[in-house]
Design a protein around this nucleic acid. Structure first.
Lengths: 250, 250
DNA sequence: TGTATCAACATTGTTGACAACTTTTCGTTT
DNA sequence: AAACGAAAAGTTGTCAACAATGTTGATACA
């Protein structure tokens, strides 16, 4: 995760459990990481749609910082596949191709079961409690049918599972993939949008709780497979310059 | 891809700790990623030691670019834990604490067995061949006792295993961790430096080849554990402000 | 000799101006 | 009216000067 030591920042909410939901107190010193966090959150909550233009000027105004900070934040985001930088054209929220979408879920299906297994083997009690609380939050959001919250919470669950390993590197990796998944679901999510099917998080946590590593891993795998299968990734939609393909030439 | 090749390659002053070994052809347009790649390589080959200062000016001269490019590259590297930025003091090659070292190997021991398992289940023949060739290169380096090569090759093997999954995200994650491991081995590597014990890569590849996923995963795990156990992580060497601990105060 | 202080120097952080490029607008032509 | 092209406007990329901070070395003093 590389927490850089930037001078002395007092109370940057780099917090690790709650993932920066919304209007929080501004840190007294805004640096790249803060901007990155906010854009991360916006993407997770589907408030920033894929391909959305991210104008430097507007971001400068929004955050009240100079262009340099914004450009650095965008560079970091682009390195993580959340944003795409096009030379002389600017930054856009990433709009993953079906191929990339496949790659993201493929990676998740390799990595997350392993993390679930590890967490099932050894999890601190307070993390168990945290995950349980989180699931009940998901339930509430489902009841009150507050879609935005549910979307965010569904993704955050996976991040928190990774966090329960106590390893911030794992958390970082999963967070990146979950955020990209959020874009993917926004693009290819089927009409019957069952993002994270109801009881599955709960089942997974149950396996973790009783230390059943194999089951935890396999539940995680199946859970991800289900989400992926719920996507409509069929037509490898053209991305750029593939007009000939569309028209059947070539 | 490669458009035009202009011949304005700037002369490389080859500073004392030459980051530029000038083996490779320079791209006609140097961007952040190129600089990042070169520093990655230098770290992997132990040509850049931990805590080495990375002066902006020297990097500018070395790569023949403006300060902006260098600063962007350093930002990316710091985000990946390869470089540490200290406000108003500049960039230094990261010098992981024992705690961070633990975290890196911990993450690897979770992720890489899962990748090995996946690769064992399905690997393209040409990747098998590539891995086999790689191992024979390692053998040669071991014979001719060319230490630098062996160090680099040992790390690269793990990256290539990840690459054999066909998933570039996995490759990227592992590459980052392997590079950080390279720093860690440089710092904590025991006197009897058996970086990647002789036959283990070969054994692992054998399991992969015959599709024995469980064995592949467990060999990878044991392999990493052995490397980690070979480190001397015992005394949580102070990093900052822990002077009191050293002096027994507090 | 060793330590504290301060000034000169060196490096990094930031800002603003300008250049390069893209997009939009608008007038002209077919 | 549609298509084309050129000027205008807007955005991004680059650079250099300046400000802020850290480092070094010299001098004074105990």
């Amino acid at each position: 995760m590389a927490e850089r030591k930037r001078g002395f920042r007092k109370s940057v909410p780099t917090d690790s459990t709650s993932i920066e939901t919304a209007n929080k107190a501004l840190p007294d010193r805004i640096d790249e990481t803060y901007i990155v966090e906010r854009i991360y959150s916006a993407v997770m909550e589907h408030r920033l749609p894929p391909a959305q233009k991210l104008s430097e000027l507007k971001l400068c105004e929004a955050f009240g910082v100079g262009r340099m900070r914004v450009r650095r934040a965008l560079l970091l985001l682009s390195d993580q596949g959340i944003v795409e930088l096009e030379a002389n054209r600017g930054a856009f929220v990433a709009s993953p191709s079906p191929k990339e979408a496949n790659e993201v879920f493929d990676a998740r299906m390799v990595l997350e079961p392993a993390i679930a297994r590890r967490v099932a083997i050894e999890i601190p009690p307070e993390c168990l409690a945290m995950l349980r609380r989180h699931i009940s939050l998901e339930g509430e959001a489902r009841e009150s049918s507050s879609g935005a919250d549910l979307i965010r919470l569904s993704g955050e669950f996976h991040v928190k599972v990774a966090l329960a390993s106590g390893n911030l590197i794992l958390r970082r990796v999963i967070r990146e993939l979950v955020t990209r998944s959020s874009l993917i679901v926004g693009l290819f999510g089927a009409s019957n949008h069952m993002d994270c099917p109801d009881g599955e998080h709960s089942d997974l946590l149950g396996a973790i709780e009783r230390g059943d590593a194999d089951t935890a891993a396999s539940l995680m795998f199946e859970h991800l497979r289900k989400i992926k299968d719920g996507l409509e990734l069929a037509p490898p939609r053209p991305k750029e310059g593939d007009l000939k393909d569309i028209l059947g030439l070539r």
